[in-house]
Computed example of a mutant assay.
Amino acid sequence: MRASYGRQRTRQSLLERPLRRAARLHPRQRPCTASHAEVSGVCTHPEGRGRGYAALLSRRVAGAILAAGRCPLLHSYADNETALKIYRRLGFVERVRVRFTLYGPQG
């Protein structure tokens, strides 16, 4: 979420400084449908885990999606308990399980 006004941008910049080394600074929303957008690109460096950075970034992106009148959604591997715990704490609920098949070149 980009802030466009000086005061808001300064606040955002000050908030992000401690995150520079610990978490990805460019979380984003990927449009999926006219009514939904995916929370995407949120990750935390192993040394920065356990400090709430992923939750902060996820909340910020989900808030921007909601402000745009869309429903935020995300995906995770079923065994990624750390991410699932964060998502549940943020109010997300499991809606559907999907089977993922990865294709690549032979060899």
Score class of each variant (00 low, 15 high):
residue 1 M to P: 15
residue 2 R to A: 15
residue 3 A to E: 08
residue 3 A to C: 09
residue 5 Y to L: 11
residue 6 G to M: 09
residue 7 R to C: 07
residue 7 R to H: 11
residue 8 Q to S: 12
residue 9 R to L: 13
residue 9 R to S: 10
residue 15 L to N: 06
residue 16 E to D: 12
residue 16 E to S: 10
residue 20 R to W: 07
residue 20 R to D: 14
residue 20 R to I: 10
residue 21 R to K: 08
residue 24 R to V: 01
residue 27 P to H: 13
residue 32 C to V: 15
residue 32 C to Q: 15
residue 41 G to A: 06
residue 43 C to M: 12
residue 44 T to A: 05
residue 47 E to N: 10
residue 47 E to S: 15
residue 47 E to M: 12
residue 49 R to F: 08
residue 50 G to S: 11
residue 52 G to K: 12
residue 52 G to L: 12
residue 53 Y to D: 05
residue 55 A to I: 03
residue 57 L to T: 00
residue 61 V to Y: 01
residue 63 G to W: 01
residue 63 G to T: 03
residue 64 A to N: 03
residue 64 A to C: 05
residue 64 A to I: 03
residue 65 I to C: 04
residue 66 L to A: 13
residue 69 G to R: 14
residue 71 C to G: 03
residue 73 L to G: 08
residue 74 L to R: 13
residue 75 H to R: 14
residue 79 D to H: 08
residue 79 D to W: 01
residue 80 N to R: 08
residue 84 L to V: 00
residue 86 I to G: 00
residue 87 Y to V: 03
residue 88 R to P: 06
residue 90 L to E: 03
residue 90 L to D: 00
residue 97 R to W: 11
residue 97 R to L: 12
residue 97 R to C: 10
residue 101 T to D: 11
residue 101 T to F: 15
residue 103 Y to T: 01
residue 105 P to V: 15
residue 107 G to T: 05
